[in-house]
């Protein structure tokens, strides 16, 4: 459950950004979570609810954009979403170590009143 500590980091950034823009409340948070970020979106949602209670972000909405895994095949130049448990290029069967998308764990934007 490192989602709890990740959400603490997230909220620190969120409140810093809100303050920087002169807002003392946050009504929404948009994040991008890759399927290979090692983070479970549902656990983030749970942590968000638990940690925002009684803060200026209480009741705010969390939108999580899930990013599927995308690998690049250095052998044939194909960009592909690998099947589960595999990094194999579906065209030429070469395993890929080049992950282009799917590791994201980012705060995209926040909403303030």
């Amino acid at each position: 459950m490192h989602e709890l500590s990740l959400m603490e980091n997230t909220l620190a950034i969120v409140f810093e950004e809100a303050r920087r823009h002169g807002s003392d409340r946050v009504t929404g948070l948009r994040m991008r979570v890759g399927s290979m970020s090692g983070v479970v979106p549902e656990a983030l949602e749970f942590a968000f609810e638990a940690l925002t209670e009684g803060t200026p972000a209480a009741g705010a909405k969390l939108y999580i954009e899930r990013i599927p895994l995308a690998c690049y095949c250095s052998a044939c130049g194909n960009e592909f979403e690998p099947p589960p448990h595999s990094f194999e290029c579906p065209v030429c069967k070469t395993p890929s170590m080049d992950i282009r998308k799917g590791r994201e764990l980012e705060i995209i934007s926040i909403e303030v009143p």
């Binding site: 990740l6 969120v14 950004e17 764990l105 934007s109």
Partner: peptide
């Protein structure tokens, strides 16, 4: 509806 503020910061930027 309120304002949307672009942030675009990785959660683990400090780490």
């Amino acid at each position: 509806p309120g304002k949307t503020l672009e942030v675009r910061r990785p959660v683990l930027e400090m780490n």
